[in-house]
Amino acid sequence: MLKGTKPLAYFMDIVGREPDICIRYWRMFDRHVAMGRLIRRELIEAYPGEPQLEYRMLFYALPGHEWRVDAMLTLLNEPGAWSDGRERRFGELLGYEGWQIDYWLTHRRSLTDA
Rank of each mutant, 00 (worst) to 15 (best):
C22H: 00
R24S: 09
Y25C: 03
Y25V: 03
W26H: 07
W26L: 15
R27E: 14
M28A: 12
F29W: 08
F29L: 12
D30Y: 13
A34Y: 04
M35Q: 15
G36T: 04
G36P: 02
R37T: 05
R37K: 15
R37V: 03
L38A: 06
L38C: 05
L38N: 02
I39K: 02
R41I: 00
E42I: 14
E42G: 05
E42Y: 06
L43A: 08
I44C: 07
E45W: 06
E45M: 13
Y47H: 12
Y47P: 05
Y47M: 15
Y47W: 14
G49I: 05
G49C: 04
G49R: 09
G49Q: 07
E50L: 12
P51E: 11
P51Y: 11
P51W: 11
P51A: 13
Q52R: 02
Q52V: 05
Q52T: 11
L53H: 12
L53F: 13
E54S: 12
E54W: 11
Y55C: 03
Y55W: 08
Y55F: 15
R56A: 15
R56E: 10
R56Q: 15
M57T: 03
M57C: 05
M57W: 07
F59Q: 02
F59K: 09
A61Q: 10
L62C: 08
P63S: 07
G64P: 09
H65R: 01
H65G: 09
H65K: 01
E66Q: 01
E66A: 00
W67S: 04
R68P: 06
R68C: 05
D70H: 12
D70P: 06
A71K: 09
M72R: 10
M72L: 06
M72F: 01
M72N: 02
L73R: 15
L73N: 07
L75C: 08
N77D: 13
E78M: 12
G80L: 14
G80N: 09
W82N: 14
W82Y: 08
S83P: 00
D84F: 11
G85W: 06
R86A: 09
E87G: 07
E87R: 15
R88L: 05
R88Q: 07
R89E: 03
R89G: 03
R89M: 04
R89T: 02
G91P: 00
E92C: 03
E92T: 07
L93H: 13
L93G: 02
L93Y: 09
G95V: 01
G95M: 02
E97Y: 07
E97H: 12
G98T: 15
G98M: 05
W99A: 08
W99K: 12
Q100H: 11
Q100P: 00
Q100K: 11
Q100T: 13
Q100A: 14
